[in-house]
């Protein structure tokens, strides 16, 4: 399973964050020694130290490469516009001018407000209905099982549908419902588009979750709502957190729907505003990069705070799904 020198001990499998035992800890060495004729302990220790350094160096290099594009954008955002074309690597002539341009052009507060309103409503609706249907499809007893699995398939089939096929029809639907030109024009499609993925995660989690607690609650006389709210939801907190975070990220990043369904600049989300950068800044690359950074950094900062939940949630949901 790994190229690490020592075989994994149960402790490290369950807790990767635990501090690594010192290199060449006695227990580790002994186990190795039992299987292979050991070279001199000193040479072996050095060999392993070197291997570990190589592995770590490699990991840092990859991470650096992945982060590099973002660093590059941040560097450009401090560069004077004419420098970007002539000498972009120079750090002697950095300026805040681009940020002044960008802040003057961008309705940042409005963008964030719109996005947060839309995300809150869409994610609340999407998560609630997904949870309800997932619970029904995994826990409740249908008179006909076929209906149950057919319904699950029906929802999961949505995973394979590219949203682009929905754009035009949903627009017509929004109009027919009289919600075009309001936040709801995108809130409802966002909520619905999240149902397949949410259902995948939630049913996956529910299937792997032992039912004893629920049975105990039912024996105690709990009804459906109390069962869900006081017993199931608390246990599902991590996966629900994942669902919420994923859906929020989706709404923050979504472009095709919002570009068709929102035509009022006062209702524009962050993504929609970003798509206009190339038009607004045309050849003012510095301004464009500063605007991009102003959108990027808050998102990354929020992610930095919440990333543990995303990763923990994925562990529980996606893999078991």
């Amino acid at each position: 399973m790994s190229t690490r020198s020592a075989p994994p001990s149960p402790a490290t499998v369950h807790d990767r964050q635990a501090p690594a035992p010192p290199v060449g800890a006695p227990g580790v060495r002994r186990r190795r020694a039992a299987h292979r004729p050991a070279p001199s302990p000193d040479a072996e220790r050095r060999r392993r130290l070197r291997a570990r350094l190589v592995v770590a160096g490699f990991a840092y290099l990859i991470v650096f490469l992945v982060v590099l594009p973002i660093l590059w954008i941040v560097l450009l955002s401090f560069q004077q516009s004419d420098q970007i074309l002539s000498d972009p690597f120079s750090v002697r002539t950095l300026t805040l001018e681009n940020y002044r341009d960008a802040i003057a052009t961008l309705p940042l507060v409005q963008m964030y407000k719109n996005t947060i309103i839309i995300a809150t409503a869409a994610v609340t609706i999407g998560t609630t209905v997904s949870f309800m249907v997932s619970f029904a499809l995994t826990r409740m007893v249908f008179r006909r099982r076929g209906v149950q699995s057919a319904l699950l398939l029906y929802f999961l089939a949505g995973l394979a549908v590219p949203v682009y096929v929905l754009l035009f029809p949903v627009y017509r639907l929004d109009l027919a419902l009289g919600i075009f030109g309001t936040y709801a024009a995108v809130i409802l499609p966002y909520a619905v588009v999240s149902i397949p993925f949410n259902t995948l995660l939630l049913t996956g989690f529910l299937r792997g979750m032992p039912g004893e607690l629920e049975e105990a609650a039912i024996i105690d006389g709990a009804g459906l709502f109390r069962l869900c709210w006081s017993v199931v939801v608390p246990v599902m907190r991590p996966i629900l957190a994942t669902v919420v975070i994923f859906n929020v990220v989706y709404v923050f990043n979504e472009f095709p729907f919002v570009s068709v369904l929102i035509n009022d600049p006062d209702l524009a989300t962050i993504s929609l505003a970003v798509s206009k950068f190339q038009g607004q800044y045309s050849v003012n690359y510095g301004g464009m990069m500063a605007a991009a950074t102003l959108v990027l950094l808050p998102q990354l900062a929020i992610y930095a705070v919440l990333q543990r939940h995303v990763i923990a949630g994925l562990t529980a949901g996606a893999v078991k799904g």
Partner: peptide, 8 residues
């Protein structure tokens, strides 16, 4: 990168 908007 997975949380950065595709348009960005």
């Amino acid at each position: 990168p997975a949380i950065v908007a595709p348009i960005l």
